[in-house]
């Protein structure tokens, strides 16, 4: 057991349907874990449970994050402690400017860490720098949050928030979907570039192509709400070639 993210015997239901079933997972500092599984296996539910979304009933188990009981924390408290969920389907929020929102979120995270809000000039410099890495034009920062963004633009915007907030645990829920070939490379490489010994990633994906650019330390096969096999990157290659037939048969 480590002191970073430790999930033990976790089960969760939605409207009486068991989605997460006796899940065990350890993620240590600096590690990258990939979770792969067929549609409907509960991968997104796991990311939502970790981020603290309402509507899930935890029937058993514990989730420990940096020594704290994660389930006792509200979503904003989890974020302020360093958990970041890159959404599979980011919502549109009319009337809220993208740049103002990111500034508010960053200030909130910094406040929790005992830091002053970034000065406007420093913030602008930082967000322009990160936007440039992701190929996000400056005018998109002034637009309403995700409103009218294409699927790919939304995913880039999630990646921008990830780079700006610099969390200790990033959960990427199918961040690669909806991106064109060029955007995929830019987003994947920018996420990979922030890899270090202090931050970890939990990558939920269907495709090996993302894991070729962000090479995971561990790959887990997630079926019917639990991990049924874990391995290294070679497991992702096997799934890419043969699908989930072997694992579903085992289950």
């Amino acid at each position: 057991m480590n002191n970073f993210l430790n999930i033990q015997s976790l089960s969760a239901k939605v409207e009486d349907k068991l989605i997460i079933n006796n899940l065990n997972l350890n993620v240590d500092k600096g590690e990258v874990h990939a979770i792969m599984g067929p549609n409907g296996s509960g991968k997104s539910t796991l990311s939502n449970v970790l981020a603290g979304k309402d509507g899930y009933e935890i029937t058993s188990g514990i989730i420990n994050f940096c020594g704290e009981d994660l389930m006792s924390l509200k979503p904003n408290e989890r974020s302020n402690r360093g958990i970041f969920l890159a959404f599979q389907y980011p919502v549109e929020i009319p009337g809220v400017t993208n740049i103002n929102f990111i500034k508010t979120a960053l200030d909130s995270n910094r406040k929790h860490r005992g830091l002053d809000p970034l000065k406007p000039g420093d913030f602008l410099k930082l967000i322009k720098e990160k936007s440039k890495i992701l190929g996000i034009p400056e005018d998109r920062l002034k637009r309403q949050l995700n409103v009218g963004f294409s699927g790919g633009e939304k995913k880039r915007n999630e990646a921008l928030q990830l780079l700006m907030l610099d969390p200790s645990l990033a959960i990427l829920d199918e961040t690669d979907s909806g991106l064109d070939v060029d955007a995929f490379k830019i987003v994947a490489d920018s996420i990979n570039s922030r890899r270090n010994n202090d931050s970890s990633m939990l990558i939920i994906t269907h495709y090996q192509r993302l894991l070729e650019r962000i090479e995971p330390d561990f790959v887990h096969v997630f079926i019917n709400g639990s991990i049924i096999e874990s391995g290294g990157p070679e497991l992702a290659s096997e799934i890419e070639s043969n699908g989930y037939e072997r694992f579903t048969d085992v289950k």
């Binding site: 603290g52 979304k53 969920l85 929020i93």
Partner: peptide, 18 residues
């Protein structure tokens, strides 16, 4: 919208701020 509230809170905003 609960999805919007969750999105904002998942970025560190308190329920009141969201």
């Amino acid at each position: 919208d609960k999805e919007q509230l969750f999105y904002l809170q998942s970025r560190g905003l308190s329920p009141v701020s969201a």
